[in-house]
């Protein structure tokens, strides 16, 4: 039962999860994180409510995996005793490479990464992954009104950051 469902969901949503995580955490072994998302889904399968959507459930897990990864990287940076070492290992697939970003998109990507976390959450889910308000609310465990308001504010903040960026 679990195996067949996870198998089905994996092939149905693995690219969506990969896409989401790439924007959420940036560089790194995104495929490892995708695997981690589905491992957590296996372990938490009993808690999955059949009436809810597996897509929003998996995105919700992916967001937590992404947050854990960002925290882990932050801790690793603090603990690092070697100064001036680049965070990204040489040859690692960067979002610029994976997404083949042009200059305008690279700036947009950097602005997204600079947003505060709830703005980034809602921008990635609503604008990039094109989830509905209802789906976004389910992933973030917010009400729909909060999704609409936060999304609007996030877009305005994104625009302002983007305008400010060339002047920095």
């Amino acid at each position: 039962m679990i195996s067949s469902k996870i198998s089905q969901w994996f092939y149905q949503y693995n690219k969506d999860i990969y896409h989401f995580l790439l924007y959420y955490v940036g560089s790194g072994d995104i495929e490892d994180l995708v695997q981690e998302v589905f491992i957590r889904a296996i372990k938490g399968f009993d808690s999955f409510q059949a009436k809810s959507s597996p897509k929003t459930w998996l995105f919700s897990i992916a967001r937590h995996v992404g947050l854990d990864e960002l925290r882990r990287r932050k801790r690793a940076r603090i603990k690092s005793i070697v100064p001036f070492v680049d965070d990204e290992p040489i040859g690692e697939a960067t979002p610029e490479k994976v997404l083949q970003l042009n200059e305008n998109n690279r700036i947009l990507y950097q602005v997204i990464q600079s947003l505060k976390s709830n703005y980034r959450d809602v921008i990635i889910l609503r604008a990039i992954k094109e989830l509905s308000v209802l789906e976004t609310a389910a992933v973030l465990n917010w009400n729909e009104n909060k999704v609409r308001i936060t999304y609007h504010r996030a877009l305005k903040a994104l625009e302002k950051h983007k305008e400010d960026l060339p002047n920095e």
Binding site: K15, H19, V98, L99, Q100, L108, Y109, E130
Partner: peptide, 10 residues
Amino acid sequence: ELRSLPEPDY
């Protein structure tokens, strides 16, 4: 602009 951001090269 956000929606035109490319998907990864899977």
